[in-house]
């Protein structure tokens, strides 16, 4: 039975902006909504998706053995215990990078498309071969960035490459938003980033210490801590991906206490 699969590349250019965390949480959220979802770790050099999902001890085979036809796809897929709609296809050995070609990524994704509603590809940082291989296998993309000059600049490079390769739609997730700093105008605003990158905003994710706690445990926030600020943001992103009309949060509303009103006043645009 052929199913209509959405293949989404999650990329950023710069490392450490939150690609893998977004992939893990989006995977859990979509699986929760009832969609069979595969997350593919395309970061063969520095894999981490297994760790964030708490699946590192259950890996037997990887994408490498699947490509070399040493095992079947379902033998390599690691099913999540709590969320059975979610499966991880782990990244192989870093030596794979020596021979991996865009066509190999296409082959793997084509196999996944036969059984899943969603295929999320966790892209490696950089704009070199790892990125190009991953891009070859995708239809649409989510670009993750932070409100910082280096992350935005790198995102811009990646968006340029996605555009030349006719990947669409390309949507933006603005991660690690600090409402207080934004209100004090010591951080690029949501508008600044969306104006500069000229992409539709799929969602923003508030800076949240719980993200670190969740990675310590190998349990994505959307799994067990659904009330944490970042978890709510991830869940909203998953819903918007489905076409649900969920309004964006206003960072200014997230600041509580005495200073909030004053900060909002200072942000008033005069001309």
């Amino acid at each position: 039975m052929a199913i209509d699969t959405r293949v989404i590349l999650i990329c950023s250019g710069k490392g450490g902006v939150g690609k893998t965390t977004l992939t893990a949480n989006l995977g859990i959220s979509l699986a929760r909504q009832g969609f069979t979802t595969a997350v593919l770790d395309a970061d063969f050099g520095l894999r981490n998706l297994d760790l964030l999902l708490g699946l590192e001890n259950r890996i037997v085979y990887t994408a490498q053995e699947v490509l070399e036809e040493e095992c079947r796809l379902d033998q390599a897929l690691v099913k999540h215990k709590q969320e059975s709609n979610l499966s991880l296809l782990p990244a192989g050995n870093p030596r794979m990078l020596d021979w991996l070609k865009p066509d190999d990524m296409k082959r793997i994704v084509d196999m996944l498309k036969e059984q899943f509603n969603y295929v999320l590809i966790d892209c490696p940082a950089g704009v070199e071969d790892g990125f190009k291989n991953a891009m070859a296998a995708t239809q649409e993309a989510i670009v993750v960035t932070n409100p910082e000059v280096s992350a935005v600049r790198d995102a811009d490079r990646v968006i340029g490459l996605l555009n030349t390769n006719s990947i669409k739609p390309v949507q933006l997730v603005l991660n690690r938003v600090r409402p207080k700093m934004m209100a004090n105008q010591e951080m690029l605003s949501i508008d600044d980033v969306t104006d500069i990158l000229a992409l539709p905003l799929l969602g923003l994710v508030l800076e949240d210490e719980q993200v670190i706690v969740s990675t310590n445990r190998g349990e994505p926030l959307t799994l067990n801590s659904v009330n944490s600020p970042a978890a709510k943001c991830y869940l909203n992103i998953a819903k918007r991906l489905q076409g649900e009309d969920i309004p964006l949060i206003d960072p200014a509303e997230e600041i509580s206490g005495f200073g909030a009103k004053f900060r909002r006043l200072m942000q008033t645009k005069i001309f």
Binding site: V149, V152, N184, Q185, L265, Q267, K269, I270
Partner: peptide
């Protein structure tokens, strides 16, 4: 666009908030 904060900073000859510098440099 100029905000109230930008104007106060200008009047007090303070450094502008870093977000506008970031925007321009970017």
């Amino acid at each position: 666009a100029m905000t109230l904060r930008d104007i106060i900073n200008k009047l007090l000859r303070r450094q502008p908030a870093s977000a506008s510098t970031a925007r321009e440099r970017l």
